[in-house]
Amino acid sequence: MEWLLYVSAAIVAVAFALLVVFIITTLKALKQTMESVSKTVEDLQGQVDGITKESNSLLHKTNALADDLQRKSDSLNSVFSAAQDLGLTFQTLNHSVKRVSDSVSQQADERSEQVAKAVQWGNAALTLWTKYKVRKDTKTAQTGYRQAK
């Protein structure tokens, strides 16, 4: 029976040795996995740092661009204000011209009969003047012809 005790102790020792071998193998694989994870995390940290720097740079450029855009927008406000004032001035001028035009048109309509009469009188006066001048020239020509004889 004593040998049974030795055999059992040997089996326990072999089982313990196998258990230790499997644990060592598992721990080595776990160590490699952890080293790979550590390397991946370090690479990822480097990439995150690079992305952070680029993001900060992009944010600063965006802020500078927004400030520049705001300044230019503020300077354009005066241009738009002046354009609005100019538009109002043109609108006022157009209203004034329209009123004057309406007034002139109304007065022309009211005086169109008087103008027509004045034109008729002018034509009559011009006709009389022409006839007078023709008679005078005819008399002068006849008198000059008689004196030449």
Rank of each mutant, 00 (worst) to 15 (best):
D137A: 10
T89R: 09
L126Y: 08
S73H: 15
A124G: 07
K72C: 01
T33Q: 12
V97S: 10
F80C: 01
L128D: 06
T40W: 05
E113S: 11
A148T: 12
T33C: 07
F16D: 06
Q84F: 07
A66H: 05
T92W: 01
G87Y: 00
R111H: 10
S103G: 14
V104C: 01
K72W: 04
R135V: 15
K117C: 03
E110F: 04
E54D: 09
A108G: 08
L59C: 03
N94Y: 14
T33P: 00
K53D: 02
R111A: 14
L18C: 06
T33K: 10
Q106I: 08
K131M: 13
N123G: 07
A17I: 05
T92E: 12
G122T: 06
V119N: 07
H95G: 15
A141F: 02
S103H: 08
D74H: 02
A9N: 12
G122A: 11
Q107A: 15
L69I: 07
K133Y: 07
Q142T: 14
T130L: 03
Q45M: 09
T62G: 08
I23D: 05
Q107N: 13
K53S: 03
Y132K: 07
A64V: 05
M1K: 10
K28Q: 08
F90V: 06
N63L: 08
E2P: 01
L88E: 10
A29T: 06
L69D: 04
R135W: 05
S81C: 01
D137G: 07
L76Y: 01
L58G: 01
A29S: 08
L93S: 13
A66K: 14
W121T: 15
Q47Y: 02
A66E: 05
Y132V: 13
L59A: 15
V79T: 14
S78K: 10
H60Q: 15
V119C: 02
K133S: 13
L4R: 12
L88P: 00
T143L: 05
D67N: 06
A9D: 02
A15E: 02
A125Q: 08
L30V: 07
Q147V: 11
S36Q: 13
V48N: 01
S75Q: 13
W129S: 11
Q45L: 08
K53A: 01
V79G: 01
K72T: 08
S57C: 02
S36H: 10
K39G: 01
